[in-house]
């Protein structure tokens, strides 16, 4: 049970993120929703790569008596997560820039106040 907690957290975060994207009207809150969804995906990747009692997979700096490779956590999902975080920063910056531009044009961030809902 205790090892399922990361996956349960992933599910909860994903639901919160999707809820914010679908039902919230403020554009900044939509951006926040996307970020939460992204955290959920990143957390699930890290949780997949974890092994009970595993150490960091750095061959040159291993503690003694570590079983290679089963005593180490998987490095690939961590690499994927790093890439995904970098991409996430870029997309978040772009979304917030769009939100700022929309605010300059219409003086509001409410998605229902204009023809945005069309």
């Amino acid at each position: 049970m205790i090892y399922n907690i990361p996956f349960i957290t992933t599910a909860i975060l994903a639901v919160i993120g999707l809820y914010a994207v679908i039902f919230k009207r403020n554009l900044i809150k939509i951006a926040i929703g996307i970020t939460i969804l992204e955290s959920a995906v990143n957390l699930s990747l890290i949780a997949i790569g974890y092994r009970k009692g595993g150490v960091a997979p750095i061959y040159t700096n291993l503690p003694p008596n570590v079983d290679i490779p089963h005593g180490m956590v998987l490095p690939v999902p961590q690499a994927l997560t790093l890439t995904s975080i970098v991409i996430g920063v870029a997309t978040l910056a772009l979304i917030l820039a769009f939100a700022m531009k929309i605010y300059k044009h219409y003086g509001s961030l409410d998605s229902h106040s204009r023809r945005l809902k069309e």
Binding site: L27, I30, I34, I87, I95, F98, L116
Partner: peptide, 15 residues
Amino acid sequence: VEGAFKYMVVSNIAA
């Protein structure tokens, strides 16, 4: 900008 925002949200969730 609105069109870009919508596309960004859709494509981000898809990705």
